[in-house]
């Protein structure tokens, strides 16, 4: 154990737990802040950066899972330690379930991608690697580039593309980790803006057909709206509602033509 002193944020709705844990950590020389819920935690995180977050996964309102998901999406790199009524099997299972519900996007992504990779004689096990490799960047770029690539080379292409993306991500993850602390606030913000901007424009570039443009616009509107209204599983519903409406309009237009 090193004796590094850190800035720690405790997020838990239980006041006794917050106080006692804070006292224990402060006795070890750490600087500790507390938050009683998700919104309070977000406020604290706007004020300063932390070396470690202790997050109770079971809280009223925005629970720990939703909070962590949001923080990760927004590029928070501080280690997060999920805490609960000290990990019985049931609670661990509940955490797993929570994460599972937040990863639904992978299902439609895989269903939309794999048929583009298949040739006569492709076995299910040939598809395992691209299935496992599917990520937002890989998916968007594959949908764009695959039509120009011979079918029998497409699986290899996707695997190569993903390996390159992951290699780059790991490398810059390391660089970013050491850079972030010393970077002025504005520049760090500019750096964090790279992800939404590149996702945004590459998705716009992919939306050639009306049906894709519709899905894109509906998603851009529904995503923030459902989140703002506090809808549970907001992103999943954004996909299902936005996508289905776009699909229905597309079918309707086809039928009238």
């Amino acid at each position: 154990m090193t004796s590094r002193v850190g800035q720690i944020l405790i997020v838990d709705d239980d006041a006794t737990f917050r106080m006692t844990t804070a006292k224990l950590l402060e006795a070890d020389g750490h600087r500790v802040d507390t938050a009683a819920n998700g919104p309070e935690a977000t406020e604290r995180l706007k004020e300063k950066t932390y070396d470690l977050l202790l997050v109770d996964y079971k809280m009223p309102g925005i629970d720990g899972i939703a909070l962590v998901e949001a923080l990760r999406l927004w590029g928070h790199s501080a280690p997060i330690l999920m805490i609960s009524g000290f990990g019985t099997g049931a609670t661990l299972f509940e955490v797993a379930l929570g994460v599972t519900l937040s990863a639904t996007r992978l299902f439609p992504m895989v269903v939309a991608l794999l048929p583009l990779l298949r040739v006569r004689g492709t076995r299910v096990r040939d598809m395992l690697l691209p299935t496992h490799f599917t990520s937002i960047s890989m998916w968007v770029e594959s949908l764009r580039l695959l039509p120009a690539i011979a079918r029998e080379h497409r699986i290899a292409f996707c695997n190569g593309l993903s390996s390159a993306y992951m290699g780059t991500a790991v490398t810059f993850g390391f660089v970013g980790y050491y850079l972030a602390a010393g970077l002025p606030s504005l520049l760090a913000g500019v750096l964090l803006f790279l992800t939404p901007m590149s996702f945004f424009l590459s998705t716009v570039r992919n939306a050639r057909m009306m049906i894709d443009k519709l899905s894109l616009v509906l998603g851009l509107i529904l995503g923030p709206l459902l989140f703002y209204w506090g809808v549970q599983l907001d992103l999943m519903w954004t996909g299902i509602i936005g996508g289905s409406v776009a699909y229905a309009i597309h079918r309707g237009r086809e039928a009238t033509q």
Partner: peptide, 29 residues
């Protein structure tokens, strides 16, 4: 497969819009 693509596209757009409108970390400043 076509429906899956529209769902995935809308979902992805939702992620992007949330990243821009409800930013956090240094971007929220």
């Amino acid at each position: 497969v076509i429906w899956s693509r529209t769902v995935a596209t809308a979902l992805l757009a939702g992620v992007i819009a949330k990243l821009i409108l409800f930013s956090s970390g240094e971007l929220a400043n």
